[in-house]
Design a protein around this nucleic acid. Structure first.
Lengths: 105, 105
DNA sequence: TAAATTCATCGTATATTTACGATGAACGAT
DNA sequence: ATCGTTCATCGTAAATATACGATGAATTTA
């Protein structure tokens, strides 16, 4: 974008937009589901089940980690990713609040 | 992106990601709130209260309209925008479903 | 009809996102 | 110590997103 104007909005709006951004790619939505469903959560397992290269999956994981929706724990040469229930609940609650606020035009 | 891989995901995942994308900018979140709060919903009124140029606001409205979260009704030389409660409810429900599905790692 | 208002769209510049192969770091196994 | 595995990061290419001024279409008003 030319120059970001995000400073001009409330931090709540910026944060919620950021959470939404982290959910704005089908691969990341699928990853969140997979981390819940799979017993194993090694990156390799995710790569096997996604139509994306390892580097790309790693990038998506980084984005989810950036906003705190997942956490990674190093386990030898592997990394075990896990959803962050606390942050997830916070996001759910904020989205609920937004959707309850809007929609009575 | 190089070449989109979105075809490789379910249409539900793609749609939900698309809804999230439409919420992924603070201006669009603010617009949804404003359309709910304001009695008037003319584009000019939105532009007055946003730190963005008219052309930019129009682009954000287009994005919200694209996914169906708002609708615009022509009223003379003006356009009255309005949240689409039906689509909003659908989005809320789908996000609820997602958040209930994930998060028990 | 002419002028003013309202808004979408075009053109454009810059930033960010998405995707991949290649490389490198960390670790376990041999 | 060397090798293979696992994953993050770098570099890069192409697509999208964000922002704005300028322009144009539609409509109302003078």
């Amino acid at each position: 974008m030319a120059v970001s104007k995000k400073d001009e909005f409330t931090s709540e709006e910026v944060w919620l937009a950021d959470v939404a951004k982290s959910l704005s790619h089908p691969a990341r939505i699928k990853i969140l589901k997979m981390l819940t469903e799979m017993n194993s959560c090694m990156v390799g397992s995710l790569v096997d089940k996604l139509p994306l290269a390892q580097a790309t999956v790693s990038q998506h994981l980084k984005e989810l980690k950036r906003v705190g929706l997942i956490e990674g724990e190093i386990d030898g040469p592997k990394v075990c990713y896990c959803v962050n229930n606390k942050e997830l609940a916070k996001a759910k609650s904020a989205l609920d609040k937004l959707f309850n606020k809007i929609g009575c035009c």
